[in-house]
Amino acid sequence: MQTIANGLKGPLKRPQDLIACYGGKEFAAILPQTTVAGARFLAATCLAHIQSLDLPHSSSPLRVLAWSFKAASLVPTVGQRVENLVQMADQALYEAKARGRNQVVTWPIDR
């Protein structure tokens, strides 16, 4: 996990950006004042870096670690709940997995 975390932190350039372990096998990137396009670009950069590591994964049909990145963005409003942002990102993740992994999908779902 440390190798992956370091790979994800590499593309972050701003001091306010944060990568954190979220759940067992997930990471969250908190990117204040970042558009969905900016988050998509950063996720694609991280994906390319992680893929270049060619990390073995014995239970994957690809025999290497596969990644799916989800991205969602919102401008907070009064009464907005953080759970809404997590739900939007999760929908993007399900779509990425349905498409075969090793890709980035944003919310609203980009087709």
Rank of each mutant, 00 (worst) to 15 (best):
M1S: 01
Q2W: 00
T3S: 03
I4M: 05
N6H: 11
N6E: 14
G7L: 06
G7Y: 05
L8W: 04
K9I: 11
G10K: 12
K13L: 14
K13P: 09
R14M: 12
P15L: 13
P15D: 09
Q16V: 13
Q16P: 07
L18R: 12
I19F: 07
I19N: 03
A20V: 05
C21M: 05
Y22H: 10
Y22C: 00
K25R: 00
E26H: 00
E26S: 01
E26R: 00
F27G: 00
A29V: 00
A29G: 07
I30V: 11
Q33Y: 13
Q33S: 13
V36P: 05
A37Y: 07
G38F: 10
G38D: 06
A39G: 15
A39S: 14
R40W: 06
F41K: 10
A44C: 07
T45P: 01
I50T: 01
I50M: 08
S52I: 03
D54Y: 03
L55F: 07
P56Y: 04
S58D: 14
S59A: 12
S59Y: 06
S60R: 09
S60I: 09
P61C: 08
V64T: 14
L65A: 11
W67Y: 09
W67E: 06
S68E: 11
F69S: 11
L74H: 12
V78S: 15
Q80G: 13
Q80A: 15
V82W: 14
E83W: 12
Q87W: 04
D90G: 07
Q91Y: 04
Q91T: 10
A92Y: 05
L93W: 01
L93H: 05
Y94L: 12
K97S: 02
K97W: 03
A98P: 02
A98D: 08
R99P: 04
R99Q: 09
R101M: 02
N102M: 02
Q103V: 03
V105G: 10
V105E: 12
T106R: 05
R111C: 14
